[in-house]
Every structure is written in C-alpha cells, then in structure tokens.
Amino acid sequence: MSDHNTMNLTLHVWRQKGPNAPGKLETYEAKNVSPDMSFLEMIDEVNEDLIKKGVEPIAFDHDCREGICGMCSQVINGVPHGGQDRTTVCQLHMRTFKDGDNIFIEPWRAKAFPIVKDLVVDRSALDTIIQAGGYTSCHTGGVADGNTILIPKPEADYAMDAAECIGCGACVAGCPNGSAMLFTSAKVSQLAVLPQGKVEAATRVNAMTEALQQCGFGNCSNHYECQAACPKGINVKFIAKLNREYLKAVFE
C-alpha cells in the first residue's frame, strides 16, 4: 500500500464502561487508513492498535457488514450512519473522508436506547414494539399454494418499500424527539396494505403505538429528520399512513 493513498485521521470516540458509568469522548489517532477500507474496518485497525497498547478496544455493534442486518449503529459527525445517503456504517467507506479529518463517533442517543458499552446500545425496545403487533396471526400447517391470495402489484411494491426497514434505529437516533415513529409506521403500513395483515390492522396500530409510548420513545412532531437519517430511505409517507390507520381504528 503506497503512502500517498493512505490518510491519518483523528477520532473522537464516545467511551463508556457500562450502562451507569459516566462516559466521555476520547481522542485516538487512526494512522495509514486506506480509502478502500470500510468505516468498521478502520475501527478494527484502531482497536488492534489499542489492544497492543493495552487499552480496552472500542466496543461497537456489527454483524453482516453488508448493509442489511441493521446492527451497526454509530452517529458519525452528527449524522446517524455517517454523511452518505442511504448507507449503513458498515458500507460507508473511508474514501468519503480526507486526510487530517476529525471524526466524531457517538452511540445512538435516546432514553429508550440505554448505552450498554461505548458505542453499543440496547435496542430491544424496537423488538417490544414489534412484539406488540408487528405480525399477522395465521394458522400453521401445510404450506399454502403460491398465489392463493392475490396481491395487486402496487400494494406488493408499497409493502416491500416499507419492509425495507432493517430496524437499525437510525430514525430514533436522528429524531430530535427520540421517536421511533418511522420504524413503527413502516411495519404498520407494510402489513396494513396486505390481505393477510388487513384483518388485524386496527388492533395492530393501537398496540404498536401504545408500546412505542411505553418504551419511552418520544412523540413524532414531523421534523422528517428520520427519513433523512434512514439508511434504507424509508419515506415519512408511512407515518402519514400510520396516522390514517390510527384514525380509521378510532372510528371503527
């Protein structure tokens, strides 16, 4: 690797030993970073250095590293998943940074996402919301024939757009109100347009919005910051759809 290609960066990383420990930003140097590395690979290298120096490596969440699992969760320079549109941290490459850059790395911040350690937060509140109604009840048994239930293409596409949500929580991290309304609305909308999901649409929207409230998420006040932060580009039209489903449920 030739030297002129690599860059030296200064990282300001949130370090916190445990859920109740006080945390603060620590500064680290990342030297000889290749522009072809992903952001997480860059942190891996920094961690190697820290281990050699006898410093506790930076804890962060990751899994598939191909942008589909929703595990990586870092606010980079004030933007969830970093500044590149529709990109998760693991798919963010170092070529989007310049030699000498200062990079601030912080965990998702919301009351409903308590910090476990460093950049790792507990996102099980999102599971609680799904458990409240983000499913369809159906009989188990033999596999049903394909195309037994016909779904028009526009509805199928709409549901797929909503189903793109990977549940990473960037919408909550970006929201000034710490609200998980975009996440909740994606699931409510996805199921509400499908024949299998329509049956329970009213109970679902009530149960899921109630769970959202009880998990300590804030209220949506239409900043639309979530849509901009979402690595999958989930549209706020789904929040309007959730509101519509809620009002329908009130009058049903």
């Binding site: 912080e106 109100n177 609200s179 998420f217 209220n219």
Partner: peptide, 11 residues
C-alpha cells in the same frame, strides 16, 4: 419529547 431525548450529541 425532551425526556425521551435527554442526552445531547457532542456533534
């Protein structure tokens, strides 16, 4: 909403 978002980001 303020209670749901108690800690500010550094950036």
């Amino acid at each position: 909403n303020n209670a749901a978002n108690p800690t500010a980001y550094a950036v």
